[in-house]
Amino acid sequence: MQKEKCAHTWQMVNVTPCFIITEKCYHCGKISTYFSTGHNPPMEEYREGEHYWNFMESAQSIHFDLKCTKCNMLVKFDELLGVKMCTGCDENCEANTLLKKLEPERTWVYIAFGCLPVNEKKQLSKEKISILEEYFNQRRKSSKSRIKVISHEIVSNIEDCYAEVIKDVDMLSLTLPEK
């Protein structure tokens, strides 16, 4: 007997507030990003293999998993650092081509990105990206517009991508805003 396939209804679970830490190695120029649940990232330069990491930015974000409310299937999103909206910053980027194609039907391209450097850390699978897309579209409750989630692998240069990242920078700054 064949098991019936569940038409998943996703729900965000295991939501943990955390910080996206960005560091740079001035020897090779690479950027490193990762989640931290602590409030104080290492401010001093430190060595990791061939890299010498220096602190650049700390932004508030969340880590989450998705769970199907019908069949209880849990999908862990440890490899996902965040999502960002493609604004078509690079003419030659494939994400821009996709956005141009989908824009007339109000389908917006969001890039799911993992930790940097890309080839040194585990990245999100295609299956998980399509689950993420399914989740956000279910939540939109709209037939008039949609979200297309793509992997950062499609972006021509993820380190130079100016897509709008959903994260909170400078929330904790005690500096007064400019008038």
Binding site: M171, L172, S173, L174, T175, L176, P177
Partner: peptide
Amino acid sequence: SDLVSDVLA
């Protein structure tokens, strides 16, 4: 508010 700087301002 959640914005520290605005709380001050």
